[in-house]
Amino acid sequence: MPIATSFQTIGPYWALIEHPEMADLTRFGAAGENVVLSGRMTDGDGAPVADAAIELWQASPAASETFPGWGRCACDRDGRFRFTTLKPGPLPGPGNAQQAPHVALTIFARGILTRLVTRAYFDGEPLNDADPILGLVEDPARRATLIARPDGPGAWRIDIRLQGESETVFMEF
């Protein structure tokens, strides 16, 4: 039986495949509630991660000709990223559980050999308290790393810390 191919790092020069418009998931004319999700990525020294690729994937709303459900953004010199997308709705979870609205975020960078995957939930969503994935994180401070905070009208912010104090919760599946 063949086994899945090994990962190797995306390296420092992945921007050869970077296209800034990919950070706007509404660019094909998607209709819905537009949201901006932005944040800043820092390393174990609190320094900006200036050469990372961050990808956003959301299974809700379902992908269509006008909504890819996927985007990619290059962190800037200050480690900042910014996506424009549609607000996700709830999704079915394991068993009869319902998942609160969320997007998945994937981090690729020089110095990361595979990929780091986390989620961004939206602060104040009533389903957050019963979400089956959030519920796996017992420490409230760690759980908070998965929750985007309001950042003005239609805007949300989530920071990503790769290592150390307030380290983001990363998932394996």
Partner: peptide, 30 residues
Amino acid sequence: TQPDNNAPEYGSTHKRHPKQPGLRTPQTVT
């Protein structure tokens, strides 16, 4: 068969690999 993100021989990993173990999650529609 997959690299460990904590790879001391590769210097750029030192400040970029998470120290906490990954959270094992079930696969959902996401």
